[in-house]
Computed example of a mutant assay.
Amino acid sequence: MIRFEDVHKSYGSHEVLKGIDAEVAKGQVVCLIGPSGSGKSTLLRCVNGLETYQRGRITIDGALVDAEGPAIHGLRTRVSMVFQRFNLFPHRTALENVMEGPIHVLREPASEVRARAEALLARVGLADKFHAYPGALSGGQQQRVAIARSLAMRPDAILFDEPTSALDPEMVGEVLQVMRSLADEDMTMLVVTHEIQFAREVADAVLFLDGGRIVEQGPAAEVLRNPRHERTQDFLRRVTHPV
């Protein structure tokens, strides 16, 4: 469904992505892991046109992702994104945040959208928070609102950019549980994460990035339990057994 072909991205003279080749099939959960600065979030942001890339191709179901082209707005409705810092509108309630996209982007009737938004908030465990503002919600609750907001667009795939890294440890589990339920329903997901246990349990495939390149990729069980590349071995040793 999502294909990367020789993707290169630079900021001035600094090359961040150095020829990425990978695929995400429909219904797959693919986790991007690697050290900070390896290009994971940049690659994710290139998928929905938040960043431009200078060389290569990114396609979604065969349609070229071009951040400056007219088709990018349509592609963004098909591929939603959940950010590290939630990005909720602080002056809108949880319900209003979830309803915003379908009403103003998809031009759907408010009555239909409201029913769907209420059902999605209930699905992520927030049936009692419809009228709460983001400032009155915990980090984990805000991130679950953000996931419900993405689902309200009825996307074909969801991109997650380190969705738990801004959360207190006790709130991480509630967000990962929602993501696990999406995986069980065959939602296509591309996830930048440092949660190795989540990747081990949920991911179909793992891409290990370092220095703007894919050093190792393959089925999650193979990459995470028996990595072949020395750099992957060292990274996993450090994150699973920190000093």
Rank of each mutant, 00 (worst) to 15 (best):
residue 98 V to G: 01
residue 162 E to C: 08
residue 95 L to M: 09
residue 97 N to T: 05
residue 163 P to A: 08
residue 203 A to T: 11
residue 164 T to H: 04
residue 157 A to N: 09
residue 96 E to V: 10
residue 157 A to L: 11
residue 126 L to I: 10
residue 133 Y to N: 09
residue 106 L to A: 13
residue 151 L to A: 11
residue 119 A to Y: 01
residue 130 F to H: 13
residue 187 M to I: 03
residue 130 F to Y: 15
residue 102 P to L: 08
residue 133 Y to G: 04
residue 95 L to A: 07
residue 89 F to Y: 14
residue 218 G to Y: 04
residue 81 M to F: 10
residue 184 D to T: 06
residue 107 R to A: 13
residue 173 G to Q: 02
residue 219 P to S: 07
residue 120 L to H: 06
residue 199 A to G: 06
residue 110 A to L: 03
residue 215 V to C: 08
residue 119 A to R: 13
residue 86 F to S: 01
residue 217 Q to M: 13
residue 155 P to W: 06
residue 159 L to N: 02
residue 211 G to H: 08
residue 118 E to V: 15
residue 214 I to L: 10
residue 145 V to I: 12
residue 120 L to I: 09
residue 79 V to D: 07
residue 117 A to D: 09
residue 93 T to I: 08
residue 176 L to Q: 06
residue 151 L to D: 08
residue 125 G to H: 11
residue 137 L to W: 09
residue 92 R to N: 00
residue 150 S to F: 02
residue 106 L to R: 15
residue 184 D to L: 13
residue 147 I to D: 00
residue 134 P to T: 08
residue 144 R to T: 13
residue 91 H to G: 04
residue 85 R to L: 00
residue 153 M to Q: 12
residue 85 R to S: 14
residue 210 D to R: 12
residue 189 M to T: 03
residue 74 G to A: 09
residue 152 A to L: 06
residue 164 T to I: 05
residue 77 T to I: 00
residue 111 S to A: 15
residue 103 I to H: 03
residue 167 L to V: 12
residue 190 L to W: 01
residue 164 T to C: 12
residue 172 V to M: 05
residue 104 H to W: 07
residue 154 R to W: 03
residue 166 A to V: 09
residue 170 E to T: 08
residue 131 H to E: 15
residue 99 M to E: 12
residue 128 D to S: 14
residue 163 P to E: 05
residue 177 Q to F: 06
residue 214 I to D: 03
residue 83 F to Y: 13
residue 159 L to P: 02
residue 143 Q to T: 11
residue 161 D to T: 12
residue 96 E to Y: 04
residue 95 L to Q: 05
residue 145 V to D: 00
residue 126 L to Q: 08
residue 119 A to Q: 12
residue 112 E to P: 00
residue 110 A to N: 01
residue 160 F to I: 04
residue 164 T to N: 03
residue 204 D to E: 05
residue 193 T to W: 02
residue 161 D to H: 12
residue 184 D to G: 11
residue 181 S to T: 14
residue 192 V to P: 04
residue 136 A to S: 14
residue 163 P to N: 10
residue 134 P to F: 03
residue 210 D to T: 00
residue 146 A to H: 04
residue 86 F to G: 00
residue 152 A to Q: 07
residue 201 E to V: 05
residue 169 P to T: 13
residue 192 V to K: 02
residue 84 Q to F: 02
residue 142 Q to M: 13
residue 158 I to C: 07
residue 110 A to M: 05
residue 137 L to D: 07
residue 191 V to R: 00
residue 125 G to D: 12
residue 146 A to N: 07
residue 149 R to M: 10
residue 147 I to C: 03
residue 181 S to V: 04
residue 82 V to A: 01
residue 115 A to H: 13
residue 167 L to C: 12
residue 135 G to V: 08
residue 117 A to K: 05
residue 131 H to L: 13
residue 116 R to Y: 04
residue 144 R to Q: 13
residue 177 Q to E: 15
residue 193 T to A: 04
residue 192 V to D: 01
residue 80 S to G: 15
residue 193 T to K: 02
residue 211 G to L: 08
residue 141 Q to P: 10
residue 154 R to M: 13
residue 81 M to Y: 07
residue 195 E to M: 06
residue 156 D to Q: 15
residue 127 A to Y: 11
residue 101 G to H: 00
residue 197 Q to Y: 02
residue 95 L to N: 04
residue 105 V to G: 12
residue 159 L to H: 01
residue 80 S to Q: 15
residue 180 R to M: 12
